[in-house]
């Protein structure tokens, strides 16, 4: 019950232009944006990216708080990136002499550059997951990868596996919670002891969980077969993806952004 209401991924339900974009377009544009962030040669080139991100966030109706939350788990890596670059990079223009290390202007710029790059990457990627339900995302991924079927890439199978995983994660979490409680009731201790003791303590949780997952898999396979599932061949879809005007506009906007970023890098 406690884990019953867990929401998957971090989808933020809202009705916005960004939410309505074709998932295929969103995935491709995300890749283009990542490229743009990587080709940005200097800090100035980030300005249009940041402006674009702000605009899309505004359009998506996703609260800024949610966006910032995505960075939180990365704060240590972020600090590490910043500090390492700041202290260990050699440069020509000293700004501050701390005795044990000299901070140079070049090091400061690089530190800001790399940290900013990381923050932007995370924020732009989370914008995709925040505005696209996981199942739609899977769908988009399947359609994008389906041309690869000619080289026997199992696009449909992969998408089906992902969507089944999405369906069963809450169920298995709930089950894990229950098994954990049942073993605790028999005196099991999941919380104390050293690392090895704790790892060993997981056995009474993991074995039943695996047994159950296998049983569920068997049941599900049978139920799917009974419902005439026989792979991706000859399958029709309830949801048909169709590119509309807003998708073309989004593509054009991102293309313009990429051009601008490259230009900024050259000019400076």
């Amino acid at each position: 019950m406690a884990l019953n209401d867990i929401t998957l991924g971090q989808y933020y339900p809202a009705d916005s232009v960004v939410h309505r974009l074709d998932p295929r377009v969103k995935i491709v544009l995300l890749i283009v944006l990542i490229v743009a962030i990587f080709v940005a040669g200097n800090l100035l080139a980030y300005a249009p990216v940041i402006a674009f991100l702000a605009l899309v966030t505004y359009l998506s109706k996703v609260p800024v708080k949610m966006m910032v939350k995505g960075i939180k788990p990365l704060r240590f890596i972020l600090i590490l990136t910043f500090v390492l670059n700041l202290f260990f990079l050699q440069g020509e223009t000293p700004l501050l002499n701390l005795g044990f290390a000299v901070i140079t202007k070049e090091a400061l710029i690089t530190a800001v550059h790399y940290s900013l790059r990381l923050v932007l990457l995370v924020m732009i990627s989370s914008l995709l997951t925040l505005t696209t339900p996981p199942i739609v995302l899977t769908d988009g991924l399947e359609r994008l990868l389906s041309p690869l079927r000619v080289i026997h890439f199992p696009a449909h199978e992969m998408a089906m596996m992902m969507s089944i995983a999405l369906r069963f994660i809450p169920t298995l979490l709930e089950e894990a919670d229950k098994i954990m409680k049942a073993q605790t009731a028999r005196g099991a201790d999941f919380e104390s002891g050293n690392l090895i003791a704790r790892a060993k303590a997981m056995v009474p949780l993991l074995v039943p969980l695996f047994v159950s997952a296998f049983r569920r898999a068997g049941d599900l396979a049978m139920a799917m077969e009974a419902r005439c599932y026989h792979g991706g061949e000859g399958r029709t879809r309830l949801r048909v993806l169709k590119c509309e005007r807003r998708d073309y506009i989004a593509c054009a906007a991102v293309a313009a952004l990429l051009a601008l970023v490259i230009l900024c890098g050259k000019v400076y």
């Binding site: 998957l8 369906r167 799917m224 419902r227 005439c228 029709t236």
Partner: peptide
């Protein structure tokens, strides 16, 4: 056929899409 365990026969994360599953399979 409808099976015993209600959890182990639903495939999709949304009710509507689960009902669609069989229809998609038979084209």
């Amino acid at each position: 056929m409808v099976f015993q365990n209600p959890d182990n026969q639903l495939v999709a994360t949304v009710v509507r899409e689960d009902v669609a599953f069989g229809l998609e399979n038979i084209g």
